[in-house]
Design a protein around this nucleic acid. Structure first.
Length: 262
DNA sequence: AACCTTCGCAACCGCAAGGAT
DNA sequence: CATCCTTGCGGTTGCGAAGGT
């Protein structure tokens, strides 16, 4: 299995790695250690770019990597960490030291995501999906998924909110700046909408709306941040150490945005 | 047996963050 | 402070294997 070997304009080799290339890279790293990926290929006698060497080492050659089928326990862990961290594969991989982020990402995309969906769990929010209906606007009849509760009362757990926030932000296409712009340009519309809609790809943006609608309308404006975060923060701290701090930074920034708007 | 579809996974690409200059 | 460079991350693609028709 692998990609066809070819050479780019700079004469650098692309595609599948040969056993000989692997051996050369490992021999070099064993002797000189890691560092300066850019210069490494030349020194190691490889016609590869540094990026390719780095990837090969981290995802395949590095010692201690566990390969092969994921155990049920590992799958359970991935789902658990994904529910906490979203698509932050590197962060998830840190919790599972023997697996690479690429492996985890691949397994999620090819298997776990579909399995959750089939069992009625939304793989993005990790909430149950209660009904599936065809969208009237689409001839493709792509399903529109509605979470079990369309209302966003203040009892919504802050843990779930944080998870959803993390999931939204973790996707690069929903970068913080873009989200800020969205809030700043149409804050009132965002407050009024209270349904979280996830359907086909083009609707994914709604998911981010859903995330911030809740924050603006029901939580941030009415709940102190300390109150809001106390329980989940403690809970996540024990599970994930400092990982959750990254999410908190983002959360705090958005919280201040919400205050500016009000 | 031939063809088609799905799965699994390695590798690539583009972008962003952070450090160096 | 600005620019450049390197590293790291996440999304996506390409391809062989496996399974189904």
């Amino acid at each position: 299995m692998g990609r066809t070997t070819w050479f780019d304009d700079d004469g650098l080799k692309k595609g599948e790695w040969t056993a000989e290339e692997d051996r050369m890279l490992v021999a070099y790293i064993n002797e000189y250690g890691l560092g300066d990926w850019r210069a490494m290929p030349k020194r190691a006698g490889l016609q590869r770019c540094g990026k390719s060497c780095r990837l090969r080492w981290l995802n395949y050659l590095r010692p201690g990597i566990k390969r092969g089928k994921f155990t049920p326990q590992e799958e359970e862990d991935i789902i658990k960490f994904h529910s906490l961290l979203g698509n932050r594969w590197a962060a998830i991989a840190k919790q599972m030291p023997n697996r690479t982020d690429n492996d985890i990402k691949n397994h999620w995309n090819s298997c776990l995501k579909k399995r959750l969906f089939r069992s009625g769990i939304d793989p993005v929010t990790h909430e149950p999906v209660v009904n599936v209906k065809a969208t009237s606007s689409s001839t493709m009849s792509s399903p529109t998924l509605t979470p079990s509760s369309s209302t966003t009362d203040s009892s919504t757990s802050s843990a779930r909110l944080l998870n959803r926030l993390a999931a939204g932000i973790s996707s690069r296409k929903h970068g913080l700046d873009r989200i800020k712009n969205m809030i700043l340009s149409e804050p009132r519309q965002a407050v009024k909408e209270d349904k979280l809609m996830i359907s086909s790809k083009e609707d994914e943006e709604e998911e981010v709306n859903g995330c911030f609608m809740e924050i603006d309308d029901n939580l941030i404006s009415t709940t102190s941040l300390d109150e809001l975060l106390c329980e989940p923060y403690d809970m996540y701290q024990s599970d994930l150490g400092h990982e959750i701090d990254d999410q908190l930074d983002l959360f705090l920034e958005i919280h201040s945005l919400g205050q500016d708007l009000s």
